[in-house]
């Protein structure tokens, strides 16, 4: 369990933070995830999937539970409306893409950020970076390839 914590707690916390938006709740979610994993340890089968995938599946349920608890708390007798599961799937994908963006090289991230997220022309970005425009173009290509590799490592299947 100690090894599992060392290997996966950062990522689990990152996603919990991304979907719960509160560091205290996110830590509670990570704690609950490891406690549930410990209790159900005999049900983990490495033949079915990785430990990481299993922990994320548990965390996903914990986040749903915490979301419901939070939705129910401020209301009165009737309780809150249960949050739909769909935004959580989207949050998981969004978090994966953000995490993948963090893991690719700075050069690649930079050109993707400038050209795609800020929508700047390639020539302008090239001038700012002091490189030929063709270099920006090839960095965009290699950047997308790097993203694909990282996403696949994280379990994304095209």
């Amino acid at each position: 369990m100690r090894e599992a914590y060392a290997a996966h707690s950062g990522e689990l916390y990152g996603f919990a933070m991304r979907s719960l938006g509160d560091s205290g709740l996110a830590e509670e979610a990570v704690q609950e995830t490891f406690v549930r994993a410990w209790r159900a340890g005999d049900r983990f089968d490495p033949q079915i999937g990785s430990l990481r995938t299993w922990l994320f599946a548990i965390l996903r349920n914990v986040v749903i539970d915490l979301g419901r608890a939070r939705a129910a708390r401020p209301g009165v007798a009737e309780g809150g409306i249960e949050p739909s599961v769909e935004p959580l799937e989207e949050a998981l994908l969004a978090w994966q893409v953000e995490e993948a963006m963090r893991r690719i090289g700075e050069d690649h991230r930079r050109v993707l950020f400038e050209t795609h997220y800020r929508g700047r022309p390639y020539a302008e970005v090239a001038a700012e970076l002091g490189v030929p425009e063709g270099t920006v173009k090839s960095r965009v290509y290699y950047g997308l390839r790097a993203l694909r590799v990282v996403l696949e490592e994280m379990g994304y299947e095209g």
Partner: peptide
Amino acid sequence: APQPSPELG
């Protein structure tokens, strides 16, 4: 990426 507090473990 945000990190949990060192005490969480």
